[in-house]
Structures are given as structure tokens and as C-alpha cells.
């Protein structure tokens, strides 16, 4: 049986790893993203950012409103470089 609690499935991040990073001083979602690749998987944070936000709220005594989400950037789904670099006609 697995006793791990997965927060970011795409990047295989557990609750424990995120809590540990927060203890080390990474106390915004943006910092957690830079440190752990949180929200940088194929789904681009669809599943994990709000779960991670909840942990941040608990650990840093903040309300949900006070926590900003990392900015959204293209592409929102994985795209191969070949497609991006395709020519016109």
C-alpha cells in the first residue's frame, strides 16, 4: 500500500516534499514551481495548483485569496517542436 499523498501527479510530487520545501522557505507557488517543477507537467497544473495552494494556506497561515497563482503561459498542452516550427503551406 502506498502511504504517499500525491499533489502533482505529472511531476510525481508528494505532500511531504512540498511541505518540506515550504519549511525550507519556498513559500509561494511560483517558488515551489521553480524549486520542484510543481505545475510544470503535461497538464500544466490543472490538478495540482489548487491542492498545493491549500497546503500553503495551512502552513503559512494565509487565506486562499492571499496566494497568487503562477502566471499561465503558452502552450497549455504539450506540443512538439516540429509542430511549432512548421511552415506555412
Amino acid at each position: 500500500m502506498s502511504d504517499k499523498v500525491f499533489i502533482c501527479r505529472c511531476e510525481d510530487l508528494t505532500e511531504e516534499e512540498i511541505k518540506q520545501a515550504i519549511d525550507e522557505g519556498y513559500t509561494t507557488l511560483e517558488e515551489l514551481k521553480c524549486k520542484l517543477r510543481l505545475g510544470m507537467g503535461p497538464c500544466q497544473g490543472r490538478g495540482c495548483l489548487s491542492l498545493a495552494r491549500r497546503i500553503l494556506c495551512q502552513k503559512t497561515d494565509k487565506t486562499t485569496e492571499e496566494i497568487t497563482l503562477p502566471p499561465s503561459r503558452p502552450p497549455v498542452i504539450p506540443v512538439s517542436l516540429g509542430t511549432l516550427a512548421s511552415d506555412e503551406k
Partner: peptide
């Protein structure tokens, strides 16, 4: 919209 998930042990099974 996107569906919300929950964090609990075994949530990846």
C-alpha cells in the same frame, strides 16, 4: 471548468 481533486494517501491508485 476543471474538476477539483483531493489529497489523501492512495489518491494515485
Amino acid at each position: 471548468a476543471m474538476e477539483n481533486m483531493l489529497a489523501f494517501p492512495g489518491n494515485d491508485l
